[in-house]
Design a protein around this nucleic acid. Structure first.
Lengths: 193, 193
DNA sequence: TAATTGACCAATACACCAATTGGGTCAAAT
DNA sequence: ATTTGACCCAATTGGTGTATTGGTCAATTA
């Protein structure tokens, strides 16, 4: 009975509620009641509601990162990988509903506590893209003067469209043009030969 | 005395206040007092506060549009124009502080009344970019399969970064990479020959 | 000892009312 | 044709008491 990891139960329950109602409309008490425990036990495993939310986020983005890592580890040309990465990135993030809430952090001071998880994902992406672009240059597919700067621009574009996509629900509308976006970026990074 | 166009005075006064305090923190009474008139006179020239704000916006974006039109009417290659357009677009919009407020319309229902002006600017931009891309194809600089679709993507990128740029004040940080963004887009649209 | 409970606290959110603000109207005046 | 200022009323604001909820902890269980 107590074999089941309670910490996991808590996170699963929290995920359910946070996904459905968001951070502020979810109470610690209902998370606890849902697994037939007293509220106090949550504080045995997590030191605060914010930390619990962060754990939920960490897992959500962890899935995204591992999926993306699979793509990045592929054998194909860096161009092919780059395209696949772009499409998958948005498709995966589209489903990461708790991540969406963190996008509000830039508007509402309330959400300061998600900074760490967001930064972590940003770092991940920056590293991966740097590696990929560098590899693309080594393979002769890309010809860019400054990798860091190109990565910055890619990140600017990708982060930029997240708010319209996920908070204003324009992702479905744009989903089928993402392939073309990827094309433009691909060619844009491509050597003029 | 009554030679001075009162309507203009009103709009100028309104521009001052709206630019400084935004739509909701500005009162019709202070706009009127500033030009030593009674509040009622505002309603002789404008049927509502919202309409007055729209007029302010119209002028603000009118300036932007006419500046951009100058660039678009240039003699240079479509590539050169495209780059100049991109840089100028953001530089001009950066100064259009009332336009910034309209960006909130996508988050807060309160701002529904700015739809018309925003749509107008969107239409302008869509038309101009279509013409430019088409011209670029005719001149052999661009090689795109579907102009509309490419325009969509350009607009998606440009609109996407507006919120980070103007509402989260990241424009200064990115300003000097805009040139490179333009490059990527340019090459991205460029024929592979 | 590790895990859990439930009563308890303090801070925040919330519901409610009163007072004020501010958008908008209009008959009268200029 | 334009302007005024008193007026209306819906919405906002500020203040207050109550309820909710994040968080603590001594006692209890297994």
């Amino acid at each position: 009975m107590s074999e089941i990891d309670v910490r996991d139960q808590i996170v699963e329950s929290a995920t359910k509620f946070f996904s459905k109602f968001g951070f502020y409309k979810t109470t610690m008490d209902e998370i606890a009641r849902h697994i037939h425990k007293a509220k106090g036990v949550l504080y045995y495993y997590f030191k605060s509601k914010e930390e619990l939310f962060n754990e939920v986020l960490r897992r959500e983005l962890g899935t995204v990162k591992s999926e993306l890592s699979k793509i990045l580890a592929g054998e194909a040309d860096s161009i092919v990988i780059m395209r696949a990465y772009t499409l998958a990135r948005f498709k995966l993030l589209h489903k990461a509903v708790n991540y969406h809430e963190t996008l509000k952090a830039d508007f509402f001071e309330k959400y300061y506590f998600v900074k760490d998880v967001r930064d972590d994902f940003s770092d991940f992406e920056r590293n991966q893209l740097s590696t990929l672009l560098q590899r693309g240059m080594d393979e002769g597919f890309f010809e860019i003067t400054n990798v860091d700067s190109s990565v910055n621009i890619l990140m600017m574009i990708m982060n930029g469209v997240e708010i319209p996509f996920f908070l204003q629900n324009k992702y479905p509308e744009y989903e089928n043009t993402l392939d073309e976006l990827a094309s433009i970026i691909m060619v844009g990074l491509h050597s003029k030969k």
